[in-house]
């Protein structure tokens, strides 16, 4: 397999506001690559542009200029149904507020991406049960989201994010609404998904603890990438210390 980067971003700019309005440049030229199987974190304070960047990667928003290639195809050129299909096939999402459909059971929520792709019913069943077993939520499948705790909901959401075997899993502050125990469990789960299923993970967060689970962290500030650190072979704890130090100097 050729080592084509899973994400390749170059010269990405985003300006908000029309010609007559006051313009605001959220992203001022961003370049970076993510290799297959990487676990990358993007850190930055509120207003740094990290959510804008994530929206571009997720094809939820169009850049003003620059390109975003995911798995070799330029997603900024996609329109209409192609965007929808691309999201359905290539990308998995985990959101801070879970975004489960409360009218569906956990099983139905997880099965949704497969149903959208037209997978057969039996195949859907086996796949969902497998994923549920991996994420230890097999006993929750018949429940509705209102009957689940925050941690359980996020696991169901994670299962929905990876059930269709996307090449990229995007997380938008996935631990933001969780208690520390559930947060740790979820991050361990994401690490496991990343390693065992070979899905690249990209996490946007401002929480150093969450970030310490990544292999590599990009720091974004005022619309540009300012710093990049790698974990290499260090323990998570050591990496965590470095992130804290970086944050201390970076945010000055």
């Amino acid at each position: 397999m050729s080592e084509q980067p899973i994400i390749s971003v170059s010269g990405l700019r985003k300006t908000y506001g029309g010609r007559s309005e006051k313009q605001y440049e959220a992203l001022k030229g961003i370049d970076f690559d993510v290799q297959p199987g990487e676990f990358v974190g993007i850190m930055g304070a509120s207003g740094s542009g990290k959510t804008t960047l994530l929206n571009m990667l997720a094809t939820l928003d169009q850049p003003t200029s620059g390109t975003v290639k995911i798995n070799g195809s330029d997603v900024t050129k996609l329109h209409g149904n192609k965007i929808a299909d691309f999201r359905a096939n290539e990308i998995g999402f985990i959101f801070q507020d879970f975004n489960l459909l409360e009218t569906l059971t956990a099983f139905e929520n997880i099965a949704l991406p497969l149903s959208l792709q037209g997978v057969r019913k039996n195949q859907i069943k086996t796949t969902v049960y497998q994923i549920a077993a991996v994420l230890s939520i097999s006993n929750l499948l018949d429940k509705y989201p209102t009957e689940l705790s925050g941690g359980q909901k996020q696991r169901v959401a994670a299962a929905r994010g990876i059930v269709h075997n996307p090449s990229l899993l995007l997380g938008d502050e996935p631990t933001g609404a969780l208690d520390s125990k559930s947060a740790r469990e979820l991050l361990e789960l994401l690490t496991q998904i990343n390693q065992e299923r070979d899905i690249s993970v990209l996490l946007v967060t401002h929480d150093p603890f969450s970030a310490s689970f990544c292999n590599r962290i990009l720091f974004i500030k005022d619309g540009v990438i300012g710093q990049e650190i790698k974990r290499n072979d260090r323990s998570r704890n050591e990496f965590y210390q470095e992130i804290l130090e970086q944050l201390g100097t970076f945010e000055q």
Binding site: A58, L60, G80, N81, A84, D85, F86, R87, A88, N89, I91, F93, N99, L101, T103, L112, P113, L116, R160
Partner: peptide
């Protein structure tokens, strides 16, 4: 609105 927005995000076609 929240529900349909989410479905769009995870790649449901508008026509669907």
């Amino acid at each position: 609105q929240i529900r349909y927005n989410l479905l769009l995000k995870i790649g449901t076609r508008r026509s669907l």
